[in-house]
């Protein structure tokens, strides 16, 4: 197996995730796209761990999984709050940051 086959798969997933973050309007779907990106990163970490024969990659993959779980928890909490206040989770209607 090539190193690159895993890395390029991860790159494709990452790019799809980027597309999702940019194109999606529904906040839950944006969070899902972020999960795709995080998974792509994890795949890289594990692939490099195998290439280098060291456990560091595994360790950080575990950390990333834990952080992702926390991120989803807080992210969905935010989405819920927004939904409760404005009855919508469409991101383009949230433009308080407009300059």
């Amino acid at each position: 197996m090539l190193v690159n086959q895993f890395l390029i798969l991860a790159a494709i997933l990452f790019a799809i995730g980027v597309y999702g973050v940019v194109a999606r309007r529904n906040a839950v779907l944006v969070l899902m796209s972020i999960e795709l990106i995080l998974n792509a990163v994890n795949l890289n970490l594990v692939a490099f761990a195998m290439r280098n024969g060291s456990a560091d990659g595994h360790t950080f993959a575990l950390y990333v999984i834990a952080v992702a779980a926390a991120e989803v928890g807080v992210g969905l909490g935010l989405v819920l709050l927004i939904f409760r206040n404005r009855r919508t989770i469409a991101l383009d209607e949230l433009s308080e940051m407009k300059g």
Binding site: A15, I16, V18, Y19, G20, V21, V22, A23, R24, R25, N26, L29, L91, D92
Partner: peptide, 13 residues
Amino acid sequence: LNNPHWKWGIPVA
């Protein structure tokens, strides 16, 4: 479910 300008996502990705 998509942004009005979702097409911009394709070139960026």
